[in-house]
């Protein structure tokens, strides 16, 4: 589980993670925002339907694939949050 350090407040945007509105700091990656929400897993794999979560946070492992604003297979660690963004768990190949 993760938490945010108690730091001076920053400007936030509102994103919707799996249907829940959450205020997250502007400029943050989707993967970071999702991890801070402690949603457990962020996708299931296409082959064995096993749960996964962000692993490398720097764009090399492709384990953080999520459905962002309806588009599947987005690398959550490489996309920055935007106000009103819909972020959803991806199931398998992204249906």
């Amino acid at each position: 589980m993760f938490k945010r350090l108690d730091e001076s407040p920053r400007q936030t945007v509102t994103v919707i993670i799996n249907g829940r509105s959450v205020a997250v700091p502007q400029g943050e990656s989707v993967a970071a925002a999702v991890l801070a929400e402690n949603i457990g897993y962020s996708r299931t794999t296409p082959v064995k339907q096993l749960p996964r979560a962000p692993f490398c946070m720097m764009g090399v492992c492709f384990d953080c694939l999520m459905v962002i604003d309806g588009v599947p297979n987005q690398q959550a660690c490489m996309v920055q949050v935007r106000d009103g963004m819909h972020i959803e768990r991806q199931h398998g190949s992204g249906v």
Partner: peptide
């Protein structure tokens, strides 16, 4: 090593540097 909850230490550091997000428990 593929289980959620396992991640690279570098990833942990990126979370720390970029977002001030750290493990809670």
């Amino acid at each position: 090593w593929t289980l959620p909850g396992v991640m690279n230490a570098g990833a942990g550091q990126i979370l720390f540097k970029g977002s001030g997000i750290v493990p809670s428990d």
